[in-house]
Design a protein around this nucleic acid. Structure first.
Length: 278
DNA sequence: ATGACTAGCACGGCTAGA
C-alpha cells in the first residue's frame, strides 16, 4: 500500500499536474494540503474519473485539506474538534481547515496542514504553537481508538539541521526554532517516527523550495513535508521517497509529493508461500 | 534584506504563504 502527501498550493491551479501524477503513480492514497477551495468547488469529478474517492475539508482562498483514495474511505473525521469536542481551543483552531482523517483498509490516515507561523514575533507563531499543543491532545485521544496511524502532511517544521540547506543561517528561525521543534516532538512522543528517516540518513533531501530567489535552480530547499508512522506500521514500512521531479514542472507547486510504501494489510499466519505448498 | 515568487480575490493591489 502506498500513501502520499502533497501540498499542491491550489488544487484547481494544479489539477492537471495532480491527475497526471496520480495516473502515472497510482498510489492507493493521496493526501492534499492547501487546496484553497470551498467544498462545493472542489474538483471531485476529476479524481473520481481516475478511481479515487474524496474526503474534503476546504475553505475559500486559504488552507484546505483532502484525502483521495482508491480504497473505500470510512469514518471521516474533520478538524481537531471531531476528537476534542469539549476543548474550546480545539474548536477555535478548527475554524481554519487544516485537519482531516479517514479510516482506509483499517488504517487511520491523518492529513495535516500545520500553520506556517510567519515569523517568531508574529501572532501566527503563537497560533502555530497552540495548534501543535492541541495536536498532542488530539493524538492522545486518537491513540485510545486503537487504530494503526499514519500521520502525514505539510508540517512547516524542519526537525533537524540535516533537513535544511543552510542550517547555520536558518536554525532557530521560523520553521526551525526550538519551540516549534519541541512542540512537534512532544506530539510525536514515542509512538510516531519519521518514515523518511527510516531509509535515508543524509542531508540534501528536500520537499519544499521557495518560489523566490531561484531556490529550486540552486538547490536550496527544506524537508518540511513528513510521513509519520506509529510503532506498528514502522515494522511494515518498505520505503519512503520524495518525488522531487514534480517541483520541476511548469507552474509547479512549491512542494513535491512524498510517498511511503507499507506492507499493509500484513500477511496473515499461513498466508505465506510455504504454507501453501503442503 | 522591510527584498525576491505565486495564488486568491477581483480587476488594483492587497493578504498569505514559508
Amino acid at each position: 500500500m502506498r500513501i502520499a502527501t502533497w501540498n499542491v498550493n491550489s488544487v484547481r491551479t494544479r489539477l492537471e499536474q495532480v491527475t497526471a501524477w496520480l495516473a502515472a503513480q497510482q498510489p492507493e492514497v493521496l493526501c492534499l494540503q492547501e487546496t484553497k477551495v470551498s467544498d462545493e468547488l472542489f474538483p471531485q469529478a476529476a479524481f473520481e474519473a481516475l478511481g479515487y474517492q474524496c474526503a474534503i475539508s476546504g475553505q475559500k482562498a486559504y488552507n484546505g485539506v483532502a484525502i483521495l483514495s482508491r480504497l473505500p474511505i470510512e469514518a471521516v473525521q474533520i478538524g481537531f474538534d471531531a476528537l476534542l469536542p469539549d476543548d474550546a481551543e480545539s474548536c477555535r483552531l478548527s475554524e481554519q481547515k487544516r485537519v482531516i482523517s479517514a479510516r482506509i483498509e483499517g488504517l487511520r490516515v491523518l492529513d495535516l496542514y500545520v500553520p506556517n507561523g510567519s515569523s517568531l514575533t508574529s501572532e501566527k507563531y503563537t497560533y502555530k504553537l497552540a495548534w501543535l499543543s492541541c495536536l498532542q491532545r488530539y493524538l492522545a485521544v486518537q491513540e485510545q481508538q486503537g487504530e494503526p496511524l499514519v500521520m502525514l502532511g505539510d508540517f512547516n517544521i524542519a526537525l533537524e539541521a540535516r533537513d535544511i540547506h543552510d542550517p547555520e543561517r536558518l536554525n532557530g528561525g521560523i520553521m526551525a526554532s526550538d519551540a516549534e521543534r519541541s512542540a512537534l516532538r512532544q506530539a510525536l512522543g514515542d509512538r510516531l517516527s519519521d518514515g523518511f528517516r527510516m531509509f535515508e540518513a543524509d542531508s540534501g533531501h528536500w520537499s519544499w523550495w521557495d518560489y523566490r530567489s531561484g531556490a529550486w535552480d540552486t538547490g536550496r530547499g527544506w524537508r518540511i513535508d513528513h510521513i509519520y508512522l506509529d510503532d506498528v506500521l514502522q515494522e511494515l514500512a518498505t520505503g519512503c521517497v520524495i518525488h522531487k521531479d514534480q517541483r520541476g514542472n511548469l507552474q509547479p507547486s512549491d512542494h513535491a509529493p512524498v510517498v511511503v510504501s507499507i506492507a499493509w494489510p500484513p500477511a496473515e499466519e499461513g498466508d505465506d508461500e510455504e504454507a501453501d505448498l503442503g
